[in-house]
Nucleic acid binder design. Sequence first.
DNA 1: AGAGTGGATGTCAGTGGCTGACATCGCCAC
DNA 2: GTGGCGATGTCAGCCACTGACATCCACTCT
Lengths: 192, 192
Amino acid sequence: MARWEPGTAERLQKAALELFATRGYEQTTAAEIAQAVGLTERTFFRHFSDKREVLFQGQEQLVRAFLDGIEAAAPDASPFEVVAGALRSAATFFPDERRPHARTRQSVIDRNPALQEREHHKLTTMATTVAAALRARGVDEVAATLAAESGATVFGIAFTRWLREERSLADIAAEVLDELLTLAAQALRPTR
Amino acid sequence: MARWEPGTAERLQKAALELFATRGYEQTTAAEIAQAVGLTERTFFRHFSDKREVLFQGQEQLVRAFLDGIEAAAPDASPFEVVAGALRSAATFFPDERRPHARTRQSVIDRNPALQEREHHKLTTMATTVAAALRARGVDEVAATLAAESGATVFGIAFTRWLREERSLADIAAEVLDELLTLAAQALRPTR
DNA sequence: AGAGTGGATGTCAGTGGCTGACATCGCCAC
DNA sequence: GTGGCGATGTCAGCCACTGACATCCACTCT
């Protein structure tokens, strides 16, 4: 067939997750991951910019889902309404079938600070992209950043709960966003 | 006098910032930083868990300021009101005199993705600590996380503006928080 | 079929971040 | 002054990551 098996990156990711889950992240060498699929360390680093990325690469699609949700929003929607739509759209990227995989992946991340760092960074990067999309819709800088970053926060919390509970991510995210808005309203009424 | 000059970590931090600012972060070796103050690379890593930390260590005081602000809040204050107090308290840790130093430091961070990653991570870590303090006050898990994380977002945005504008951080933070609450209220009224 | 091209991989050498183990050095207490 | 002890130095070594160059083979063109 093919000279090189297709989907090299995917095979590396799979092997990496398995090794990380059993042996632990730090106890697993990039060379070992590569060897597990019959490749070289050098090739590993051609597919992933660094060792951590093997667990995170492929989130462009999630970003795309967010952006699709933004584009689908009504032109006169307020920033948080747009974010609500983006969350609905993004939630479709985590159907319940992915939960088992997501769980083992998350358990690896939760056991390693360096991986958590990367995870937070990815979330923040997503927020930055979303903020840019909001600004492109005419939302002003600060409002766009606030709404986008809040969306990321909500997504993060909702995702964590989705891993634990057996409900759909879309439902949980809507609920969490609602709670955020309610909390904010609570603060706005009594003071100032 | 003393066999070892006191404040070794501080001298390392100062030397590191200077080298990073002129030569660049990646072009500066941990060994070079140590040498600049007459020490060894090994000693550098005894003071800082990794190379990046030389720019971030010492933020426990900032966290402390946040927590003080939380403790000072009225017992019946809503989560966001508590966060507002925490922000006021935290803002005192960045008097305007620190702006020049903060600016050069930030310019170094802005030029290096790995440093940005650490910066985001620190913010998130702070948020986690604040969330725990809120929970200790009886706030429920999700609300505590939302409020704390929103506080971190506001702080981050405010800090960025504080670097650019010549106003006090407390003022800017109050303003940004206000905008967040307003945005949230906007979203709560029209829909649902 | 033979020559050539190009993308993915292998090989090798080297840098730098980071660590463990052990030695040293000199203030301080007793 | 002896011994403890905390901060530093020395040394060897692992591993993440990179640049340079060779190789390999499907595919195309002739």
